[in-house]
Design a protein around this nucleic acid. Structure first.
Lengths: 128, 128
DNA sequence: TTGACATGGCGAAACTTTTCGCTATATAAA
DNA sequence: TTTATATAGCGAAAAGTTTCGCCATGTCAA
């Protein structure tokens, strides 16, 4: 059963999620530091966005300590998968492989990546 | 030299572009028909969105005939590529192959797709 | 030409997302 | 305890997107 993962994160929400994915659970201060470096926004903005995300169920927080510790509810992998599916619907009428083809043909994937992809293709064939 | 392709299309803009990509250049009426079917919006909305997109350089129009004929400035492939790159930056710190791996491992691609992808992988190796 | 109808343009409302100022509360140092 | 500083909350402004109402203009048939 697929868990619901709610509405897609907006741009700033993704910026915040990326910090949480990269650093792991942390307080507003750490998140703000990164956002401030990236685009100079105010501390209040970060707090507000986190409260919006809390409402949307994109993050949870541990209030038993100070500062409160935020963590992402959904993994990077799952979120990426959802956004990709959405993008696919919006541009390619739902065909994931069209998009993958596009992505591959225009990227410089390493030999390592290529090998990984081959392995996955094999697995997919055996599944059928 | 890579052509600039401007700001990324918003959701409704993509809906309109999809119509143009699928049907080819056409008038407001045809575009509106589709949008109206999909979500019941008014004719005025379609006209307005097209004028916004004209300003942003996402579409061009031929005014020498009535109705004016709109066409997408960028191809579906190029737009998809850009959006994918953006998504990749926003979720995966810029690694296209992480995203492709995610996409593949969770999709049901056809045997035909799998073969196509293999072919591309081979081409990529020879390029190096 | 005139009336009916499709097409086009424009400003403003509605909605969403992002930003911040101001205030309140907790924490730790003097 | 008092004071200074980090942390949190809230409402509203600002910015971006989408929607529409109203009016103007073009097209075609009677």
């Amino acid at each position: 059963m697929a868990r619901p993962s709610g509405p897609s994160p907006t741009d700033v929400e993704l910026q915040i999620l990326r910090v949480l994915w990269n650093r792991g659970p942390c307080g507003v201060g750490d998140i703000h530091d990164q956002l401030h470096r990236d685009k100079g926004t105010n501390y209040s903005t970060t707090v507000k966005m986190l409260s919006v995300m809390l409402t949307k169920g994109l993050v949870k927080r541990d209030e038993s300590q100070r500062p409160h510790i935020y963590r992402a509810v959904w993994t990077r992998a799952r979120t990426g998968k959802n956004l990709l599916k959405e993008l696919t619907k919006k541009v390619y009428e739902g065909s994931v492989s069209s998009l993958v083809l596009q992505a591959l043909s225009s990227s410089e994937a390493s030999q390592e990546d290529i090998d990984k992809i081959r392995k996955i293709l094999e697995e997919m064939e055996q599944r059928e």
